[in-house]
């Protein structure tokens, strides 16, 4: 997904010396971007600050603190934080195992290919897969019941719940982490470890003083990316829980279908809230990534 290089330190836009008619070549692109990306988004952003008659108001922003909406944001953020953190940690161990663990060579390309697939295997099919695995008649549920004598659902577990959704999101979060973090781990030079060792450091001291600080920006940045990634996901949650789980993307989906909030402008504010949250975490990701790359040059 976002394993692309982000040239974060956006160069200052140099003054066009002699634009002539060269700019005509990019007109189609800008027209497209304005029509299908910028304008619809701007429309929502402006709409969040308007009442039904088009007058300026902060009412919609204020009403985001209504219990239903606030709760939706809360659950959304909780799920996203949980799946991002767990995905980041497991993804890190998996990437570290394959880069630094001294495992057989063929494992690495195999894992990377699989991660490429799994990070794009989201949405409804993924929901179906987890229903078939951990649903009431799912394979794992049945195997646990029949062979281990452990009734998963008696513990209060439900794949249609917070835990279930988090566990499902991990299926694309972990691979994404592996894909983005592997180059960062490759950037750890063997000489750093050796220099640390020869200066008297133990393996743990090397990790504590060198490797972890060096990886930290990449790790944290990617975690933020994972957060945004699950925060905006609709299809997986919808496929798994229908509209039973009150999270922001589902609420916005319902609002798009039929104005469940009975106030279009409040719907815009809901969308604005999403943009702000994903925008902030993506922005922080880009910033942290630039920091990490500066070191690893």
């Amino acid at each position: 997904m976002a394993q692309m290089q982000l040239d974060a330190a956006a160069l200052p836009l140099a003054q066009p010396r002699r634009m002539s008619f060269a700019f005509l070549g990019v007109v189609p692109f800008f027209v497209f971007a304005v029509m299908f990306l910028l304008w619809p988004t701007a429309f929502l952003m402006v709409g969040s600050f308007q009442d039904a008659d088009g007058h300026f108001t902060l009412e919609n922003i204020y009403r985001l603190s209504e219990p239903t909406i606030l709760n939706a944001y809360k659950i959304s953020i909780e799920i996203s934080v949980a799946s991002a953190l767990l995905g980041a940690i497991f993804g890190f161990f998996l990437a570290a195992a394959v880069v630094l663990g001294g495992l057989p060579r063929w494992l690495r390309p195999t894992l990377m290919t699989f991660c490429g697939v799994a990070s794009n295997f989201a949405g409804l099919p993924l929901a179906f897969a987890f229903l078939a695995t951990l649903g009431r008649t799912g394979l794992v549920t049945l195997l646990l019941r029949d062979f281990v004598g452990f009734d998963l659902y008696a513990t209060g577990f439900n794949v249609l719940s917070f835990t279930g959704l988090t566990l499902t999101y991990l299926y694309f979060q972990i691979p994404l982490m592996v894909l983005i973090l592997t180059p960062a781990l490759d950037g750890l030079k063997r000489e750093w470890r050796e220099a640390a060792e020869v200066l008297g450091a133990t393996s743990w001291q090397y990790w504590r003083h060198v490797a972890i600080p060096v990886l930290w920006p990449s790790f944290l940045g990617t975690t933020l990316l994972l957060f945004a990634n699950s925060f905006g996901a609709v299809a997986t949650a919808y496929g798994l829980t229908g509209s039973s789980l009150n999270i922001v993307p589902i609420l916005l989906y319902a609002q798009s279908r039929g104005d469940v909030l009975h106030n279009p402008n409040l719907g815009y504010a809901l969308a604005l809230g999403m943009i702000v949250i994903t925008g902030l975490s993506n922005g922080a990701y880009i910033w942290l990534r630039a920091r990490g790359e500066r070191w690893l040059k």
Binding site: E191, A195, V198, L296
Partner: peptide
């Protein structure tokens, strides 16, 4: 003996300075 028990100083071709320090 492990490298960290040998009391040796070493300089590498690639400098190997710790980038975070």
């Amino acid at each position: 003996l492990r490298p960290n028990q040998r009391n040796i100083g070493m300089v590498f071709q690639s400098y190997a300075l710790f980038p975070n320090m």
